[in-house]
Design a protein around this nucleic acid. Structure first.
Length: 423
RNA sequence: GGAGAGGUGGGUGAGUGGCUGAAACCAACAGUUUGCUAAACUGUCGUACCUGUGAAGGGUACCGGGGGUUCGAAUCCCCCCCUCUCCGCCA
């Protein structure tokens, strides 16, 4: 969430920039200003009342020591009043703070100055495209048929054992998964990332920290018995490592990478366009997370973008990079690049990575700060991106690389798969 | 699952009702000394909010979380959470 102080000092600018996200913030910002002023006034009154209480308590203590019981008893009358007063003020203050918070969480992150205006995904800006679109032979199949033909991924078994969206990977399909994960992780290590294996369940505080809670709780699987959530992405545990932490400036940037299974309920988002591997309840992903100095976070973003491009390129997949327009940008993001690979049999682009700079939006919520060289404690910037998400990469690989003889594995994966063809 | 112990500042750890936002030590930072390193010495050394706003200064809150007793709570009482140890079970 945004910092109150920033809103207070830059009202018009905030409203103006949020227009890019097609968000009219006028009312909520003015509410925030009013509530914030109320909060400060109440705070002052409360502090004054408590200060007087403290002073009297000290005097009473002193009087008791001198044996002046009567005088002490007399002073107690005022403390009764003050106690009631501070209780009332405290209650009022708590209410105002609650209302203020409730308003603040409604305000999206400010888009970066370079974000194009626009309403839908059609307005996203194409910033890069490379690779040749493969020409498939006559009897080429979409991946959901290929996986059956070669018996490498089994949705029916998943349906039987768990339910829709939980496939089994078998034989060379399973090996291919493992190969991709290891390939992605090795590349991350080459690029200077620290590898983590995070817990696959997180507590409530972590859900709030990265913003899945309170709004998007329906998207996570909840283990009620222990009040834990299955991670929708490794971003959640990896970023929450730094919740309530004050780092040193020289620690930045922190670059972490983690492979994890990801669990998403995807309630209400199923349809014809999400066949096969296009959308799953459980999938695998390698995630990269940066904690960056505010002055350099956009350099980090470019670095991450380059890293993801390197991965897709190495796999030989035609891809394009889009800069999301204001309307398509997520609530929490300031700037996002989407990576899409061409899926030859489906004849469509599939999103395989989303690389975002959240600036201090997440950091403010989870109190992720650092001590800068000027001695001041400031909010850090958080960034993350997929590097990469497996299922759609697999879908594109299968479709694009199919030949009458079988599916060709990209060269870079040979050392990991141990085979060159799925036949 | 059973039994017990415990949660205090970056760390160790003192503190059982007012003189404690918190001893001491360690770490860290700055400086003095120094051919270099080390050592020694000196100083600084929590966070948030309000006020002031160039800084300083002042006020309030925070000793796992919440509530209560009291003029006054890290300290007493109640509830909750978490961690550790031993036993049992077990990948």
């Amino acid at each position: 969430m945004l910092q109150v102080q920033y809103i207070r000092d830059n009202r018009d600018e905030v409203i103006e920039r949020l227009r890019i996200k097609n968000f009219d913030a006028t009312t909520v910002i003015d509410d925030v200003k009013i509530l914030d002023e109320e909060r400060r006034n109440l705070q002052k009154e409360l502090d004054d009342a408590l200060a007087e209480s403290n002073k009297i308590a000290k005097e009473i203590g002193a009087l008791y020591k001198q044996g002046k019981r009567d005088e002490a008893e007399k002073m107690k009358a005022r403390t009764v009043e003050l106690k009631q007063l501070s209780k009332d003020l405290g209650d009022k203050l708590a209410n105002v703070v609650n209302d203020l918070e409730a308003k603040l969480v409604l305000i999206p992150n400010l888009p970066h100055a370079s974000v194009p205006s626009g309403k839908t995904a059609d307005d996203n800006e194409l910033v890069h495209q490379e690779g040749d679109v493969p020409q498939l032979f006559e009897s080429a199949l979409p991946h959901w048929d290929l996986i059956k033909k070669y018996d490498i991924i089994d949705f029916d078994l998943g349906n039987k054992v768990t339910g829709a969206g939980f496939p089994f990977y078998k034989g060379k399909g399973a090996k291919l998964q493992r190969a991709l994960i290891n390939f992605f992780l090795d590349k991350a290590l080459d690029a200077g990332y620290t590898e983590f294996q995070p817990p696959l369940m997180v507590n409530e505080d972590s859900g709030y920290g990265t913003g899945q809670l309170p709004d998007k709780d329906g998207q996570m699987y909840h283990v009620g018995e222990d009040n834990l959530y299955l991670v929708p992405t490794a971003e959640v545990p990896i970023t929450n490592i730094y919740r309530n932490v004050i780092l040193k400036a020289e620690d930045l940037p922190i670059k972490n990478a983690a492979y994890s299974s990801c669990f998403r309920r995807e309630a209400g988002s199923w349809g014809a366009h999400v066949r096969g591997l296009n959308r799953l309840h459980q999938f695998d992903k390698v995630e990269i997370v940066h904690i960056a100095h505010p002055d350099h976070s956009y350099e980090d973003l470019e670095q991450m973008r380059d890293h993801v491009a390197l991965l897709v390129r190495a796999l030989g997949l035609p891809f394009r990079i889009l800069k999301l327009c204001g309307g398509d940008l997520s609530f929490t993001s300031a700037l996002t690049y989407d990576f899409e690979v061409w899926s030859a049999a489906q004849q469509r682009w599939l999103e395989v990575s989303s690389v975002s700079n959240f600036e201090s939006f997440q950091a403010n919520r989870m109190k992720l700060r650092f001590k800068d060289s000027d001695g001041k404690t400031k909010l850090a910037h958080t960034l993350n991106g997929s590097a990469l998400a497996l299922p759609r990469i697999v879908a594109a690989l299968l479709e694009n690389n199919q030949t009458p003889q079988g599916i060709k594995i990209p060269n870079v994966l040979f050392p990991y798969t141990g085979f060159e063809l799925i036949s």
